[in-house]
Amino acid sequence: MAEIGAILRTFADEYKKTPAKVKALDAFIVYALATAGVQFLYMLLVGTFPFNSFLAGILCSLAFFSLTVCLRMQIDPSNKDFSGISPERAFADYVLANAVLFLAVWNYMG
């Protein structure tokens, strides 16, 4: 237990060093996951009845989550995987991907 506490403390200390922009994105990621979690809970409690709505809802949250994770990795200066991509370019790509995502989800509405 003490070990876990130590690990968490170090983790928190290290995490404080990340830039504010990235932290904001992390909050966004947590939010996206939370929406998926709420829908998952709803599915467990109530059921999947309008299956297309359920599918669109949960996949939208998950896709949004993964896209935001990608954006976070791209603009995180400590991440060396995406060295060739500027933050502006990353954001433009992100907007485009989200446009496509919500266009796809739109098909399931109504």
Binding site: L55, L59, A63, C70, Q74, D81, A97, L101, A104, N107
Partner: peptide, 21 residues
């Protein structure tokens, strides 16, 4: 690397959504 994640994870989520349509 993160680039594999970027190529694959959105493809699975959004691809499944598009395929289901």
């Amino acid at each position: 690397t993160g680039r594999h994640y970027l190529a694959f994870a959105p493809l699975v989520f959004m691809g499944t959504l598009l395929a289901a349509s």
